[in-house]
Amino acid sequence: MDFISQGILEAFRLLLSGDSQTYSAVAATVKVSSMSMAVSLAIGIPAGFVLGYTDFPGKKQVRVTVDTMLALPTVFIGLLVYAFVSSRGPLGDLGLLFTLKGIAIGQTILALPIVTALCASAVEQMDRQLRVTLISLGADRLRLLKTSLWEVRHGILAAGLTAYGRVMTEVGISMMVGGNIKWQTRTVTTAIALETSKGQFAMGFALGLVLIMIALTVNVSVSFLRRK
């Protein structure tokens, strides 16, 4: 298992020497996951809030649907998105195949149910007295929403991090929709898959460590928020 120790050394060499292929893959990963997370959070937090806070006809069915979508395999999402963005697909004219935007669409489908479901759970577990307290302290509707979201920030943060973890580590969507094109859509995970298939286990391991370091950076900056 000497490739593990080689991989650790290689990971540092790649990062410190500014290896352009590695940084290209890192940039692709960060860009595409940021795009998909931005959209997922922008839609998923309000949707989760509505799902957890309000009652409406069909809510149970929506909840079951969202919970089921948590189990979508990434390769399946990849195929689904491919069917739409392929030249012969309904969205073929947009030219999204083999682009980061195309991957981001798939990753949004992956992350959105996670953000929505976990936010809904966090909001559901919110103390019932919070609403009473805020209104009776004079909060208007907008303030009520803002403060309530702020009160469940730890739950929302956890939802975001869970989704981010899934998005950053998925390989099925990136491979299928992105095509693992060098300098373009090669993310850290598709690079790992490639290096592994080439038998470059140490290199694959090193890239895995790079991915973990990105995740660590994100989590450390988030824990800075969580401390409050």
Binding site: D127, Q129, L130, V132, T133, S136, L137, G138, T147, E151, R153, H154
Partner: peptide, 11 residues
């Protein structure tokens, strides 16, 4: 203003 039975403190 109302003080509920089990008051909620903001985090």
């Amino acid at each position: 203003t109302l003080l509920p039975q089990t008051p909620y403190l903001l985090k």
